[in-house]
């Protein structure tokens, strides 16, 4: 077993152990914190597929995160009120259905946004993805039907068959399983022919093109899958907070997702989890010490970029690999 695998295992076990312990000693808030870590890690794992493997620096993944969140919020609202949604279809409060809708909607948005954005590259790509996310953001702020700027409350957390999702620990376990499955999927994709082509397209697009593979299609597929994962995370995030609002779509959110990945280690399997854990812990711990926590968060992030290339995992495993 390589050193990174050992670290990954430890991370996975720790993320499970902390909430179990917190539950045993009656400190349910730490379960909530761990759930938040798991969900943000899931969102960042989605982005990692595009960014880490494909080299597609998307500064607009908040769009997919928010779309997933709104899918959950809107379905739950209609499920609760009984008003039909569209085409006579009703809402629902069943998580698996909501997840499916969230992922598919985000995936379709990813296809549309990707199809235009992937014509560009470099800084243009960063900025056009940001522009699309801003478009969705302003749409959500001004569209009155689902709360606009005020957002949308989910009065009762959605249900998972056979589990009491209102219990913090049960909901954490749901998120934990979804995260592990997604990380597994990420590993499968990375090892597949598709994954190799995607990484090759990042490292040497000309060569890939000469072998007869069209980088555009591969990238678009990766971008859409990436959007689906992030959208799924958005749906879970909505259920965690029992609330959705345009702030899930803001450019700060896109920035945070990128931060999570770099903090953990770009392109690494457990990078997003390591990054999310570190970020949430820093935010929580610093917030407890000083009102100026954002100042120190900035200093820490700056330190990581300048001096700890490869992120937390790169630092721990001693390999300053980048991507």
């Amino acid at each position: 077993m390589s050193r990174e695998t050992v670290v990954n295992l430890i991370l996975a076990v720790l993320l499970l152990a902390v909430p179990l312990l917190a539950n045993a000693v009656g400190q349910p808030f730490y379960i909530t914190l761990a759930t938040r870590i798991a969900i943000l890690a899931l969102a960042a794992t989605g982005l990692n597929l595009a960014l880490g493997l494909g080299g597609l620096v998307s500064f607009g993944h908040a769009a997919f995160f928010g779309i997933g969140g709104y899918a959950a919020g809107i379905l739950a609202t209609h499920g609760f009120s009984g008003d039909p949604l569209i085409f006579g279809l009703s809402g629902t409060n069943l998580m698996p259905v909501i997840w499916l809708v969230a992922a598919v909607t985000a995936g379709l948005a990813g296809l549309a946004i990707g199809a235009i954005s992937l014509r560009t590259s470099g800084v243009y790509f960063i900025m056009i993805t940001l522009a699309f996310a801003q478009m969705v953001y302003y749409f959500a702020v001004s569209w009155p039907a689902y709360g606009g700027e005020d957002g949308l409350s989910i009065l009762v957390r959605n249900q998972f068959p056979g589990v009491n999702s209102m219990r913090p620990l049960s909901f954490f376990l749901i998120c934990y399983v979804v995260l592990l499955v997604s990380i597994g999927l990420f590993a499968l994709i990375r090892a597949s022919r598709f994954g190799s082509a995607l990484q090759a397209a990042r490292q040497n697009p000309v060569r890939v093109a000469t072998v007869g593979i069209r980088p555009f299609r591969i990238r678009l597929t990766a971008f859409a899958i990436s959007a689906m994962m992030t959208g799924l995370a958005g749906a879970l995030f909505a259920d965690l907070n029992r609330f959705v609002s345009p702030s899930m779509l803001s450019w700060h959110m896109s920035g945070e997702l990128i931060v999570l990945i770099i903090l953990g280690g770009t392109g690494r399997l457990f990078g997003p989890l390591a990054g999310a854990a570190l970020y949430v812990i820093i935010e929580y711990a610093l917030g407890g010490i000083t009102e100026r926590w954002q100042f120190f968060l900035g200093l820490i992030l700056l330190g990581v970029v300048l001096f700890a290339r490869g992120g937390l995992l790169g630092f721990v495993t001693g390999k300053a690999r980048h991507g």
Binding site: L51, V57, F59, G122, V123, I126, G255, I258, V259, I262, T266, R292, Q294, F295, L297, G298, L299, I300, L301, L302, V304, V305, L306, R309, H322
Partner: peptide, 24 residues
């Protein structure tokens, strides 16, 4: 000599430092 990703993150961190520092 870093890629755009590092530049985005580092300057994002600078925003946090500048904003909170100014408020300070």
């Amino acid at each position: 000599d870093r890629d755009h990703l590092d530049q985005v993150l580092a300057t994002f961190a600078l925003i946090l430092i500048f904003s909170e520092g100014t408020r300070w």
